[in-house]
Write a protein that binds this DNA or RNA. Structure first.
Length: 271
DNA sequence: ACTATCCCCTGACGGC
DNA sequence: TGCCGTCAGGGGATAG
């Protein structure tokens, strides 16, 4: 599932390829029944892509005249850049194709349809999903992180997954960061000590930055815009390793459910 | 403010 | 082989 490191790789891959390009049009191949997220796509004609950025897991294109094009990849979304070289560039999961100048294409695939696209007209105040997002997990400073986390009475994993508190961390990196910091996912956030909060803050940065440098985690469907896969899945210490030996201490990794999500933990390393 | 639960969706997988 | 139930999970909605 695309989380912060995957989305960061996507925008870094896309930025030099599409910055300054004109979106000439979009073709909607299929959208969710009753969904209205693609309704505004026909407004895209002839807007220039000024910047490519992200906040949390949300990809943000700033277009000319103040428009913004937002993408959320959900569980299985892909944003692929294709040169028009005659090869088939769509498949049965393609939802939208954007046509850029120079016959380049941007293809949005989403097998499970949890992703969405939204075009925000100019003057739209930041609201909706992006407006509700908390500080980005790689941007937030140590003091702000500790302050906001320490206020919460929920489980620490629940806090990390809550995009309105800190944005960008999903199930993979919540588990990996908590393991790295030696903290049990069911700990109440407000019981974490200063030392533990510092460790967690650093663990998140370490894990996310390392994951970015590995191209992200390709667990099932994630691909970079050039079609390549990430390799951080080979570096996972706990995620999807239930029943296997902890790489640090050898104890068996167990699986539980926290905040409705499958959670892998080493009871010996995390408390 | 927080938890629990359901829903969306499709492919993989296990049981029979 | 094939049918059927279950699971996976980001985020929204709703009830408690």
């Amino acid at each position: 599932m695309p989380e912060l490191p995957e989305v960061q790789n996507i925008i870094e891959d896309l930025r030099p390829k599409i910055s300054g390009k004109i979106i000439k049009g979009a073709q909607i191949l299929s959208c969710r029944p009753g969904g209205n997220e693609y309704r505004l796509l026909d407004l895209v004609g002839n807007h220039v892509i000024r910047t490519v950025s992200r906040k949390g897991k949300c990809i943000i294109f700033e277009l000319s005249e103040g428009y913004k094009l937002l993408f959320h990849l959900g569980m299985t979304g892909q944003l692929l850049f294709r040169k028009d070289d005659g090869r088939g560039e769509t498949d049965s999961h393609t939802r939208v194709v954007f046509f850029l100048d120079g016959n380049d294409h941007l293809v949005f695939n989403d097998m499970r349809r949890f992703g969405w696209i939204e075009l925000q007209p100019r003057e739209t105040k930041t609201s909706g999903y992006v407006g509700r997002l908390g500080a980005d997990a790689l941007t937030i400073d140590s003091e702000a992180f500790k302050r906001t986390v320490h206020l919460r009475k929920r489980t620490i994993k629940g806090v990390l997954l809550d995009q309105s508190v800190i944005s960008g961390i999903g199930n993979i990196y919540a588990d990996e960061s908590l393991f790295e910091a030696g903290i049990h996912p069911l700990r109440r956030a407000d019981t974490l000590t200063e030392t533990e909060l510092n460790a967690l803050y650093q663990a998140i940065r370490t894990v996310l930055k390392k994951a970015i440098s590995y191209g992200g985690s390709t667990v099932k469907d994630y691909k970079l815009p050039d079609g390549s896969s990430g390799s951080f899945q080979n570096q996972h210490k706990v995620y999807q390793r239930a029943g296997k030996a902890c790489l640090r201490c050898g104890a068996k990794i167990i699986r539980l459910k926290v905040s409705g999500r499958g959670t892998c933990v080493c009871l010996k390393c995390q408390d």
